[in-house]
């Protein structure tokens, strides 16, 4: 295993981002976690445009954790762009949001999200969730190679 694949976290809330990063660290997940704070940046990263044009420095992620409520461009727009973009069209996207609203869940799956998770408030629950994500999406799941 020369280089561990990247996990992309699209999350505008610094607290949440830090807690998730803490959970990754606490769970012993060594994969690089790239955090983007707004939708526009996420779209650019997925397309590999602008500052993210260099795929060596900014590789196509093995997993995208996507919040829905984002500045500039919403999580749904990001999801649509990810799926429209050939290099990321098969990349697993797990929606990770604080909204458990049914319309949001339906829309996410319509846009081909792979999974939909509600952020746990409880820290221990968050830790469990991150461990499960890693186990399933990063270690077990096989996807089309880019």
């Amino acid at each position: 295993m020369h280089q561990l694949s990247t996990v992309l976290l699209v999350e505008d809330n610094d607290d949440d981002a830090e807690l998730i990063a803490y959970a990754f660290e606490k769970a012993g997940i060594a994969n690089p976690l790239v955090r983007l704070a707004d939708g526009e940046a996420a779209v650019a990263y997925a397309r590999g445009t602008g500052v993210y044009a260099d795929r060596d420095r900014h590789p196509v992620p093995a997993l995208i954790l996507l919040d829905l409520k984002l500045p500039r461009r919403s999580g749904f727009e990001v999801l649509a762009e990810v799926r429209a973009n050939p290099s990321t069209q098969h990349t697993p996207v797990v929606v990770l949001t604080s909204s458990g609203q049914q319309p949001d869940i339906e829309r996410a799956y319509q846009l081909c999200a792979n999974s939909y998770l509600v952020k746990p408030v409880n820290r221990d629950a968050l830790l469990d969730m991150v461990k499960a994500l890693d186990a399933y999406w990063v270690r077990l799941n096989r996807t089309v190679s880019a």
Partner: peptide
């Protein structure tokens, strides 16, 4: 409004709880 409550009010809570636990 309900969406806002569920999304925006919960976010700080997660921070409070999460960091306090850390």
């Amino acid at each position: 409004f309900a969406y806002t409550v569920s999304h925006d009010l919960r976010a700080p809570l997660r921070g409070m709880e999460g960091f306090a636990r850390i």
